[in-house]
Amino acid sequence: MLTPDATIRFQDVEQVFMSSDGTAVQALANVNFSIARHEFVAVIGPSGCGKSTLLRIIAGLVRPTRGSVQIYGLPVTEPREEIGIVFQRPTLLPWLNILDNVTFPMRHKYGRVTAQETERARELLALTRLEEFAAKRPDELSGGMQQRVGIARALLHDPDILLMDEPFSALDALTRDEMSFELLRIWTEKPKTVLFITHSIPEALLLADRILVMSARPGAVREIIDVGLPRPRTLDTLSEKRFNELANHIRSQVFSRPVAA
């Protein structure tokens, strides 16, 4: 599994935080895994298992206490160009229209947006089926549409790696399913290495090549599951036998006790 040419590689990563009352809280312990190029990996686990910390370490926003994280064989010491992040909340800028929200990262970093980047933003809006909303303000869009803008924003600089922190958890169940298929479509069109954090077992199964199941306190990798469901995945995937078997298995892992099948 620990291939030398892995895109992302965690080696003996440990993360300790100081809580406000001065006690040390271990967020991650002994985390080892790697993700191959253009692989879709979902991370699932109970609250407080350090899923978000994992993501922030890759993004270079948090330095691990011990161990190392490498991207393309280079240790992560600061935020890197080849990463795009999609957050739990769309967090668009209310004073910019949709197009400007998508190009915001460039404007923010370089102070200006090139015609080429604007063109690319329009393409991304087309990809996320938001073309006709380019001139609208964020509050004129539904939650699902806003989150699609968030995805387009993360894709603007064509990152190799897409980090997604429970991106659909704030959406209603129907929109959620719709968004999952949407994401699969985008990922198929523009293959990326994706780390997708989620609370939802069906979501993880529907999307991922592999699933990292984590345990809490301290956060550690309990199991890595090869999903092995055929692609392209459709609504029919949800009714496959293996889908349900895996779902039950993961559930039992997450809750650390067997669940009636």
Binding site: R56, A59, L61, I85, Q88
Partner: peptide, 11 residues
């Protein structure tokens, strides 16, 4: 998240 986005862009 936006502060993190800003940091991740190296701004």
């Amino acid at each position: 998240e936006l502060k993190e986005l800003s940091r991740s862009l190296g701004a």
